[in-house]
Each structure stands twice: as C-alpha cells, then as structure tokens.
Design a protein around this nucleic acid. Structure first.
Lengths: 256, 256
DNA sequence: AGGCGCTTGTGAAGACGTGCACAAATCGCG
DNA sequence: CGCGATTTGTGCACGTCTTCACAAGCGCCT
C-alpha cells in the first residue's frame, strides 16, 4: 500500500498498521463527513466547528465529536477542526490513499448506469473491468471500457488487482458470481441483486436493494396515513400527536 | 389448499388495527422476510419454521421470531408460520396492499436505469411519472413513460396521487427538487444524490449513496490488509474455506 | 498577564438492538 | 388419551449506539 506521509499531520504515520477497530456505526458515517469536508474545503473554509460539520453532514454534533475522537483526530479547542488535516485522516482510515480497483459484474440495466457513473473517480475508486455472462453484451464499450465475458475474471482480476466486486446481475445469477469473485480473491462485495449471498468468513458483503428502500418508506407512509386518518369516534383521545412525534428519524431530517 | 383459518387476514378494510410502532430495525428487515417468503411460496411450500425463514433471509432465527412477534403475527407452535398468512400480514403492515405511485425526478444516467427497472412492479410499486429539468430530455420515452418537465410536477402529482418521490438528480439540484416534492405533498423521499437533504418534520428521507457503500467496504479492506500484515494469532478469518459456504450472517460476516 | 468566551473531548446514563435459553403450545402417533 | 417431538413466543442479560452535560484546553482581547 502507499506510503504517503500526510503533510501537516502529526507523526502517527510511522507505526500505525493496527487501525483502531472503530464502531461500525462510526465507519458508516465517516464517508458522509468526508463528503461534507470536501464541500466545505471547496467553499474556501480552512476550519470547521463540530457544530458546523455536523450540520453539513446531517448529524448531531455530539455524535460527530465522538466519532472523530474514536479515530484519535486532533481538533483544537476553541477553534475547531483543520479541514485539510481531517480530510487526510479520514481518507487514510477509510483506505482511500490508494485508488481502489472495482470490478463490475452484470452490465444490464443498472450495471450500465453504474459503469457510466463518473462520480466514483472523485471518491477514491476506479472501475477497472466490466463483465457479463451474456455473450451478446461482451465486447460492448461503455465509458471507455470493454465488456468482457465473466470467464475472463480470473485473468483480469490478477492483472488489475481488483479490490472490490460489484454485483449487478439478476438475482438468480448473483450467488454464482459471488463465488467466482471470492475464488479470485475478492473479499469485499457490493450486491445490488435482490437476494442473500452466502460467502465465507472474512468476506464483507453490503447490499443495496432499491425495492427494499421503497418498502421501508411505504411502511412510514402507511403509518402516517393511519395516524391522520384516525377518527375521533370512540371518544378515546389518542389522536393527538404526542410531543411532536412527527419524525421517526429515519435518516436525519432537518437540524435538530 | 388446506383450510387453515386466516384470522385477521381479510377484514381489515375499514378498521385500521392501530399499527404498532415497530422498532426501526425490525421495519428494515421486514422487506427481506417478505422477499424470502415469496421465494418459498413460489417453490411450493405452505409453511416455514423460523429457522428456515431466517436462513432464507440471512438472519438469526431468534431475531426473526422477535421481529414477527412485534407485529402480532400468528405462527403455530410445533408447526411454523403459514406462508400465505404471513405474506398478507407483512404486506399489510408495510402498506403494500395498495400499489404505490412513485415519481422519479432526474432521468440521467442512474435515473434512466431506475426508470427502466421492471422489478418494482412485483414489489408493490408503480413508477407513475418521470421528470427532468433538462429541456432536451423532456419528451423522451422510457419504458412507456414520457419524461416531463419538472415544472409539471404539481399537476401530475395531483393526477397520479404520488406517494413516494425518488431523486436521481445531480447533487446541486437535489435540495430544490426535494422542496418541490414536499410542496406537492410528498412525505417520503428516496435520495440517490450524494448530499444531505433538509426537509420539514414529518417527511421521511432515505438515502442511497453508491460511493459511500464502496468507501465502507474500502475501510474493511484496509483493515483486513493491515491485519494480515500483523503477526496476529487469530488467523481463522481468511485462511479457511470450511467446506464451502459459511454462515450467511446478514451483511457483514466479519464485524460480528 | 489575566480573564473570558468558545470548542473539543469524554464520562456517565439512558435507549436501543441482539441472542440465549426456556416455558408454553401444538401436532402426530402409538 | 396421553406422551414426546417440535417450534413459537418471550423474559433476561449483554453489548452497542446515542445523547447529555461538563471539565479541560485554546485563542483573543483588554
């Protein structure tokens, strides 16, 4: 991996192979902080307070401070956090000091869009190879990359040092693809297929299912509707929204 | 086939049985259970045990039972859960007894793929309208739907009884679109733009950010790499492939 | 130099989610 | 008709996450 020293960073670059195992909830928020930090830096700021950054990232400021404290980050009391330093810190912890190579399997409807999405480059990733099992799609060019047959995965994976696999196939094909990815040494998989993947220990799988997201929203819609539709018939006055029960706090709504 | 009673299944048209406010974590899992149930039903099963369903959904069986108990579901001890009944129950709780109309704003790279994805229909949703701010895209037909200009949102939203809004615009446009959606009465938003949305209380926002998912995986990659570089004794993680497939423990097989 | 206002970092408490282990309930069978 | 096998539903203990509240630290102003 890269040996980049962080310019203004305190000398912790010398002996830090052992990353502190951050709470999973914290890890999930770090990317959001990172994006907010980049926005602020682009806007010309040099420092941020926890309050300001929390606002930009849509979280509580106490939570943000605790998250940052977990990775031993230095802010200055009375002043705030140094943007450049904090960006370096988070990018290092997230392993973004190297640009990771991503293999995308399944160039159908969604896969096509992912392959064409150019937002990955600025966030630390490079789509290095495209695969599909459908021979009629092999050879097609998308965004400067040629679609290869999935059988070529072993060879290409070795050449490109694939770090992360993305599965965008139909559900029935996903498990087999996952096994092929694992077989060539991939230990992190992002799965867009609506199914559960079985993988060996040590392999991380994250799942994104669009229909599930909609169904969760549907639940809240249903619940909101059933609340407002409650008639006062029975005489029991349950109807009053108790204490601004309004936001079930799915993702942070607006500033608390 | 069998004449099992369906207690409570049919007669819920008028009397809303006071939706219990389920734990958010449970709500997030119900759609996964639902999908697993449909798979099992298609495979010809009539009943499932909590163990079987948990396996198909990739969760712990105790967790599954507790989740189902929260929505007052009836299983039969010694037998299991009746598939048809449980499907009805979950679909009702999730508000899927009506097909919800979804408005998609932003027909770019990703939006195009979402509009063309036909997996929504089978999961309780209908993409009812497409919008874009770019005049050059207005009028285009996608999957039988015409792309309208976003200014038409008020009129179309009223006609189609839009229930959920999906934002697939570039980040700078997302906040404005969210406000337009809220203005026409949408209270549930699925946001694919990489930014934080500010919305009034009572509006639910869920966010899907592909780069964030990759960055979370990158962290784990980074951590795994730094671990293998250590003389740590706990080598059980990567080395062994114990008889093929291991535990399909939800998502992260590692951080447990 | 000293004091004052501002901000971080963190201990402690509470809320929430998870998993174990077992009693209660049901079916099938002899 | 009762018994054992099986499976649900749940009380309880434990770990994780969140939030509050405040002492410690820092810079600025007088």
């Amino acid at each position: 991996m890269s040996q980049h020293r962080h310019p203004g960073a305190p000398d912790r670059a010398g002996a830090v192979p052992a990353l502190p195992d951050l709470p999973e909830a914290t890890v999930a928020r770090l990317p959001e902080y990172l994006r907010a930090l980049h926005n602020l830096a682009d806007a010309g700021h040099e420092t941020v307070s926890s309050e300001g950054l929390a606002g930009a990232a849509g979280v509580n400021s106490a939570k943000l401070r605790k998250d940052l404290s977990h990775l031993g980050s230095y802010g200055t009391r009375g002043v705030g956090y140094d943007l450049a330093l904090l960006i370096d810190q988070i990018e290092f912890v997230l392993g973004l000091t190297q640009r990771r190579a991503v293999a995308l399997v399944g160039v159908g409807n969604l896969g096509h869009a992912l392959a064409g999405y150019d937002g990955f480059a600025g966030r630390g990733f490079r789509i290095a190879a495209l695969f599909d099992a459908d021979a009629s799609r092999v050879g097609e060019m998308i965004n400067g990359l040629v679609v290869r047959h999935v059988d070529e995965l072993p060879r290409v994976a070795a050449e490109e040092a694939i770090s992360i696999g993305v599965i965008a196939t139909p559900a029935p094909a996903a498990q087999a693809v996952a096994e092929q990815l694992v077989a060539v040494g991939v230990t992190s998989i992002l799965n867009f297929a609506p199914c559960v993947l079985s993988v060996p220990d040590g392999v991380d799988v994250r799942k994104v299912d669009l229909a599930i997201e909609l169904q969760i929203l549907s639940f809240h819609e249903h619940r909101k509707a059933s609340l407002t539709a409650l008639p006062a018939a029975g005489g029991s006055a349950l109807t009053a929204l108790p204490g601004g029960l309004a936001t079930p706090d799915t993702q942070e709504a607006i500033g608390t």
